[in-house]
């Protein structure tokens, strides 16, 4: 077999097409492929109805080649089917590096795929590059809840990396760009016992989705109870944004878990994040590393959140926030 070559990105599907992480993988993958002097390719695992659209979409991201595995069992995200298909695609594509998203799907898929192939994976990377000296993939990933970072080397071939969403610049689409298509005939007959999805319940708050919001108003332990979240909702509505919360506020039952922002909650990439009564534990900061401007309102001037903030207010939220809301409303009416 020839030496492994190139960078392969695993295309992720959303309910409507290609998930946004795919453009971020293509952006990071293109730079890595350039450093290696090799090609960027992509893997699409799907049913025959959806794959043409996905192939076109990923083609616009500037990949050279798309490996396509089509099978009825790949219609939804049944992880065992996707694992088996990707294992076969990777064996045929023979890449040096495989990139996935550390998304809800990718965080389960990545480690299992790497282990199945006896390879290593760098999880939740915020930077990737090529270590010329060791001739291996190197990655930087937050550790200890984000209190520090680790530079790691993935010494296997292929080397796997799962990229943190919103940590890499998405590559812009090029209209009319297409990729060479390589069909991979996959066999999914030897899949063992699987976990089946039997029910799904939605608990999404009304309004703008937290992940998509340009402005997020977020509350923590300092709010002292569920009641203050009403003002936060009012403020978010006035700003056209969404409401989030720290894990402490969710664990206390003040708001449901879909509000949680942080290492084990959602990662957001808002332009403006207003943290109210949030101390700024590193685990929380991990979820807002993609935020452009953080505003901290906290009565404790020593709180860690001020070290991350662009603007800070030391004061009692119950006085600062209503006045701030009033000012926002007046500005809007002018």
């Amino acid at each position: 077999m020839a030496d492994p070559q190139g960078v392969l990105i695993v295309v992720e599907r959303s309910d409507t097409g290609m998930a946004p992480i795919t453009a971020e993988l293509a952006g990071a993958g293109a730079q890595l492929a350039k450093a290696l002097g090799q090609d960027l390719s992509a893997a699409v695992c799907s049913d025959s109805a959806s794959s043409p659209g996905l192939v076109q979409a990923v083609g616009r991201l500037g990949v050279k080649r798309v490996f396509v595995a089509e099978h009825a069992a790949l219609a939804g995200f049944q992880i065992e089917a996707h694992l088996a298909a990707l294992e076969q695609v990777i064996k045929q594509a023979n890449p040096r590096v495989v990139l996935l998203g550390k998304t809800v799907q990718g965080r389960d898929l990545g480690p299992r795929l790497a282990f199945r192939l006896g390879c290593g994976l760098a999880q939740d990377c915020v930077e990737i590059g090529w270590d010329q000296g060791r001739n291996t993939l190197q990655a930087v990933r937050p550790v200890y809840g984000g209190a520090s970072q680790a530079r790691v080397l993935v010494v296997t071939s292929p080397a796997f990396a799962a990229l943190r969403p919103k940590a890499f610049e998405p590559v812009p689409e090029t209209a009319g760009a297409t990729a060479e298509v390589v069909k991979v005939a996959v066999s999914l007959d030897s899949i063992g016992p699987v976990a089946k999805l039997v029910n799904r319940t939605k608990q999404e708050a009304a309004g703008v989705r937290l992940e998509d919001a340009r402005t997020v108003v977020s509350g923590g332990r300092g709010l002292g109870g569920p009641e203050p979240f009403k003002v936060l909702h009012e403020l978010a509505t006035a700003l056209g944004g969404a409401v989030g919360a720290s894990r402490a506020a969710c664990d206390a039952g003040w708001v449901p878990y879909p509000y949680q922002i942080g290492l084990t909650g959602k990662s957001i990439g808002a332009d403006l994040y207003i943290a109210i009564g949030i101390s700024g534990a590193s685990q929380h900061l991990a979820g807002i590393s993609g935020v452009k401007n953080i505003v901290a309102i906290n009565k404790d001037g020593e709180a860690n959140i001020f070290k991350e903030a662009r603007y800070g207010v030391v004061g009692d939220w119950s006085k600062v926030v209503p006045a701030f809301l009033q000012a926002v409303k007046e500005m809007a009416s002018r």
Binding site: L121, S148, Q149, A150, V152
Partner: peptide
């Protein structure tokens, strides 16, 4: 090891 820690640092 498949993955080696080269360095842990505080950014």
């Amino acid at each position: 090891p498949r993955v080696e820690v080269a360095q842990v640092f505080i950014p």
